[in-house]
Write a protein that binds this DNA or RNA. Structure first.
Lengths: 325, 325
DNA sequence: GGCATCCATGTAGGCAACCTACACGGTTGA
DNA sequence: TCAACCGTGTAGGTTGCCTACATGGATGCC
């Protein structure tokens, strides 16, 4: 085996290559594309903007291409930079896939999985999840937020799994580049004071509820699609008194006679004095969806947690007698 | 946008992750799998074995897995190490694919392409190739070798493109993990002294040639398949006088009356005193095949050179009236 | 219009990572 | 038994990456 000795210069020496792509540079470009500014990437990756700026310069020198251009206050990726940012997903995902294979081969899934969730879904999904993970080597980080449907996708930059919801369709808006997994389909019921006129009915129609005072959610929040649908169906406006985010706050105000509202069925255990009634004739349900960046989804621990959430979602639907789809 | 500030620890800090795969480590494992020993990898990559040994230890510490085991004089990859070595192809190829896209987007293909070739094929393929690349930013490194069919694949470790040949089938043996591109199908003709008894015929059969003295090639060399086939066809042994590698040496010895031989049609311009006659009834042709490692094949410059070689091969076959397949 | 804010980008210096040089122990084959 | 390889450890130099700090440009608010 003296082949290497007789032709030692056949092997490509890295420093002779005109351009040499490093994964670290690809990751940087991808983060810039996702977060917009160097400063945001710096905060997210616990580094200084200066470090990133230097790294960009070395990448540009290495590749002999301009990657960013000044743009008002910040920077903008050049076409070449965008090209590489898109390619980064491919490289980083394949790397994560290899890592997942190693994890699967060498033992149980392990490591830190960060979950961000909207409170109502987390309230019902997370306790069973913690129970199931108690024996495992997976540790969780949790964060909660109640935000507009289109903003959930942005949280997938920081969390491995974002538990989101969507009424518009199966996948929340803005989640195009993400892996989305539907965990459950949860009916949205009307919440009423127990002594309300409508409380005697077992099911409510749009006509039943249109002329009462409503406690709504801010615009852009998924629940808001339901009053909008009722308005379209009846041709009359819904009278919204407040626009609130927190479901428990809505419930207590409904109990105080401030109006009627909408609450998700699984996470609402009605207090004495309020009752839930299903709404029929209107598409009144939300999809609870897990979102992950493709590369994060490849991690075995992340996949395992997602699988658990799917099973928990199925059990929830079975418990409440909700059919799939 | 104070989302990052309010939850700065959501981003996965690398040093918190239980295992973190680095492409450099994958590449090292792949090279170990391909070359067998650390020392061979060290020679090929212009580093000391010590550096590689240290790198292996850090990789093992990072991944919390044993990657190599002592094995007689050298090392052997553990199952985990093999797993990663296989995954390395995937990662490195996707990296090369991104690089190729960048090359394609930012200008002409450029850089150094190393070619290893068997002399006869190189003799006809490389001059047209050099002509076509004269205007380009691609520079070539050349190496030539005349080796057994199964040994060509090993050269693809060191060269971007290995121009090989095969009689056994479309793809040379041992080229399983490689990208192989058939460049041409070249007939192998019988070379005779011009005053030989058989020179009067325009075509020769196995029966015609079986009883003459033969100048053969060493065993394992593709041309040797033809006399073997003739032996099987006629049931009689071929009488081989010499076993030589160099085609021009064979030609001159045939001219000197040492026997008859076999020569590839494209690269043989018979000197005065010798003639070529096609052999019929026997599968007497070789495939000229370009071999590349998958990741090297992704490089735009490598792909460009391969494409040129394909066109040159087609032109050669048209020039000599050889049909494809 | 001035000023605070946010952004990116330089420079200097510390620190860690990587590699080479060299020495050493184990295995193989002449 | 000895020479030839192989992998591994240690010491030390060089490089590369990052932080801290200062600077200049763009934006938006009072």
């Amino acid at each position: 085996m003296d082949a290497e000795r007789s032709q030692p210069d056949q092997f490509p020496r890295r420093y002779l290559e005109p351009r040499h792509i490093e994964p670290r540079h690809l990751e940087l470009l991808r983060e810039i594309a996702a977060r917009g500014t160097l400063a945001a990437v710096a905060r997210a990756t616990h580094r200084t903007p200066s470090a990133l700026s230097q790294q960009l310069r070395t990448a540009e020198r290495e590749l002999a291409v301009k990657l960013v251009e000044p743009d008002s206050r910040g920077v903008r990726l050049t076409p070449a930079g965008q090209l590489l940012a898109e390619g980064a997903d491919e490289v980083i995902s394949s790397l994560a896939r290899v890592q997942a294979r190693l994890d699967a081969a060498t033992g149980d899934p392990r490591g830190l999985v960060s979950i961000g969730t909207l409170p109502s879904a987390g309230q019902v999904l997370l306790p069973p999840l913690l129970r199931r993970l108690r024996e495992s080597a997976i540790t969780l980080t949790l964060d909660d937020f109640d935000i507009a449907e289109a903003d959930f996708a942005a949280r997938a930059l920081d969390a491995d799994i974002v538990i989101s919801h969507s009424i518009s369709g199966g996948v929340p808006r803005g989640a195009e580049g993400l892996i989305s997994t539907v965990l459950a389909r949860e009916p949205i019921d009307v919440v009423l004071p127990a002594d309300h006129d409508l409380a005697g009915k077992t099911e409510l129609t749009a006509q039943d509820v249109i002329d009462h005072d409503w406690l709504g959610v801010p615009e852009g929040y998924p629940f808001d699609a339901i009053p909008v649908a009722i308005e379209q169906l009846t041709g009359r406006p819904v009278h919204r008194t407040f626009r609130l985010r927190d479901n428990h706050l809505v419930e207590s105000l409904v109990g105080a006679g401030a109006g009627i509202g909408l609450l998700p069925r699984f996470s609402t255990r009605p207090a004495p004095g309020v009752v839930l009634r299903p709404l029929i004739g209107v598409r009144a349900a939300r999809n609870i969806v897990a979102l992950s960046r493709p590369d994060r989804h490849e991690r075995l621990a992340v996949r395992t947690v997602t699988d658990h959430l799917v099973r928990i979602g199925l059990e929830l639907m079975a418990e409440y007698g909700v059919e799939e789809g």
